[in-house]
Design a protein around this nucleic acid. Sequence first.
DNA 1: AATGAATGAGCTTTCATTCAT
DNA 2: AATGAATGAAAGCTCATTCAT
Lengths: 212, 212, 212, 212
Amino acid sequence: MSKRLQPEEANARDRILDAALEVIAQRGYSAAGVQEIVELSGTSKGSFYFHYPSKEEMVMALVERMSDKLIAKIEGSAGQQPTPLHRLAASVDALMATFARQRNVARVLLLNIIGHGRATDRKFLPIRERFSGLIQRQLDAAVEAKQIRPLDTLLVSQMWVGALHEVIVRWLLTGQPSPLTSATPALRAILLKSVGADPPALETPGVSADQL
Amino acid sequence: MSKRLQPEEANARDRILDAALEVIAQRGYSAAGVQEIVELSGTSKGSFYFHYPSKEEMVMALVERMSDKLIAKIEGSAGQQPTPLHRLAASVDALMATFARQRNVARVLLLNIIGHGRATDRKFLPIRERFSGLIQRQLDAAVEAKQIRPLDTLLVSQMWVGALHEVIVRWLLTGQPSPLTSATPALRAILLKSVGADPPALETPGVSADQL
Amino acid sequence: MSKRLQPEEANARDRILDAALEVIAQRGYSAAGVQEIVELSGTSKGSFYFHYPSKEEMVMALVERMSDKLIAKIEGSAGQQPTPLHRLAASVDALMATFARQRNVARVLLLNIIGHGRATDRKFLPIRERFSGLIQRQLDAAVEAKQIRPLDTLLVSQMWVGALHEVIVRWLLTGQPSPLTSATPALRAILLKSVGADPPALETPGVSADQL
Amino acid sequence: MSKRLQPEEANARDRILDAALEVIAQRGYSAAGVQEIVELSGTSKGSFYFHYPSKEEMVMALVERMSDKLIAKIEGSAGQQPTPLHRLAASVDALMATFARQRNVARVLLLNIIGHGRATDRKFLPIRERFSGLIQRQLDAAVEAKQIRPLDTLLVSQMWVGALHEVIVRWLLTGQPSPLTSATPALRAILLKSVGADPPALETPGVSADQL
DNA sequence: AATGAATGAGCTTTCATTCAT
DNA sequence: AATGAATGAAAGCTCATTCAT
């Protein structure tokens, strides 16, 4: 009854995105050739351009698919938490855990889809904003719940995203820390401290910090 | 005695780097053609390949030139400060101020030289590390001077660099905040708070926070 | 009893030809894609290749359909005339009038189906010859009826077709003369003069030149 | 001292045009691939696009080169004639003679550069107009010199060009008449007759009709 | 030191045609 | 009869790099 099919059984649209993820992660956006993508996907150039109007549009679709899944995972994880601050901590943890499990997704989302000209960069800006927007809303809620003092949540959300981004990129490039998630507790503590939230304040009966 | 020459008087090596900075900032690394660079520089393809063995090596030289200048500016600014914590604050301020004044440098250094394949990315890793290394040494000094409590300075330095990176990238893409430096005081305060340093602790006679 | 159907009611074979006429008139033979033709026709690629073995054969069918209708119109118009010379004049008039009314037909027949390689050009030669053959037979009849002196009717028929062709092509490309048919009397007079037939010689009781 | 070089010695720009003439004559405009042209020319794709910005621009250059030479030949031949009517006759003769000698030029100029979409067709319109304009000016001069009665010289010049065009195209496709120039005297006579000029009126001492 | 014409592998994209349904 | 996803050869074009001058 499983919906998880063997690659050969999945439809061409998805097989192409799967292959593109792999190839772009290895070679980067520009150097990822349509030829290599269709070879890996077991389809053909004709099929590629039947399903996507251009390489660029196909990458947009790939990035959106990845973002959707990642956002869903984060929101799913945060949704089970009792307070805004717990939700922030859970979001950080979920993001780290997800990227740690999916190096290629991290590679493409954090490393390979920027720096390809002003126009392309601006196209991906909304995706950046989805993540920082999610953090910002949680920060706003924490302020409203008086868990933290009022502050520039737009700026802070960008800083958090940037801090997470950099730590993960270093891991991608150097393999350190190993595993990536070993850095999560310290990272989470520093981020919370930056908004004046003492990590102990998070403790609630039945939810230890490690579980976040 | 001025070192600032008219473009036509500067030597070919530098004119090529100047032109490359401009072109890469506009088009991105991959789309920046050697043809356009040599046209803007007033030299020729032959000259380009006489001075640099490849486009990639030339970009390395450009990035190194930019990094050297930026590091020098930061260290120069930090060197005048009395304590490690003052030096950290001054470093952040100098970095923000310098990128705010040189959009193209920010664009290339932060946006356009990553994501072009595993090999290329690893080549630029040392440059990333120069910046976080600088911050880390200042953090270590602050710990040693007991201005802040012991913490994982490697991780924190990466987080700081990432936070700065993201704020500046957003500014490059959206123009907000305007001017970029208007965000500096809040940014500096949040970063210091993340390591448990109260901004008031920085105040010293003759050096107001605004001057940092 | 009407034979004129709504496009959706006509059969697929004809709907494809109708669409092809439109698309080839706009884009030219080579640039007219099968995809666009089937989209406009409301059919499908499969249907296209069920009814026609190839794009080329389908264009042949289109050209033949158009030629048949045009020849029929010309012969119908000429058939009502009393003498060979009248029939020649009527043929010229009918041809001009028909193309004036059907720009797309003129475009495809005169402009878009030649110049696509030796083989293709030769395929369309018989269609060219249908028109000049029709003129030639009328010229031969005029010679036999002693309305004009003996001459190289093969050559003259080609020249007439070429002259008409060029005038119509110019009109297609420039819109001049406007309307096309405003040139018909002068054109007819010059053609007749070229074979030594004074236009006044055409006058017969009950048939004024204007009616031709 | 000859300027005529072996193909290998000529410069790349011209070698490309020479090869393009050959390939387009065989295959037609659309089917003539840049690959085949550069192979025949002994150059490379890079060289092709170094010298011409696109295939279309290169064909424009080819057509202009051919037109220039043809117009020069016609005007040179006509310039030696005593009267406008003689110049008209000489122009017709020169055009027929030139195309008879250069089948490929005829093929490309008369057969292969039209019918490739509205935009392209309009681009070549000025070239059509160079030839009919030349004829029209000679007809105007003949009217002014009272060698022929006033008439619509614009229309007549188009008709002449069309008549010549068609005769030559038929020869290209069928090989008839053989040689092409065997049709010249009759053709010339019919054209002159179409404007009311008796061929005998052309006779001048020392210039027989055959020499025209 | 410098020039710029030349190279050719590689790029993204198109398109007539096929075929399982 | 009809569908439309799939194919893959070929298209026009780009570009880092080379080299005779």
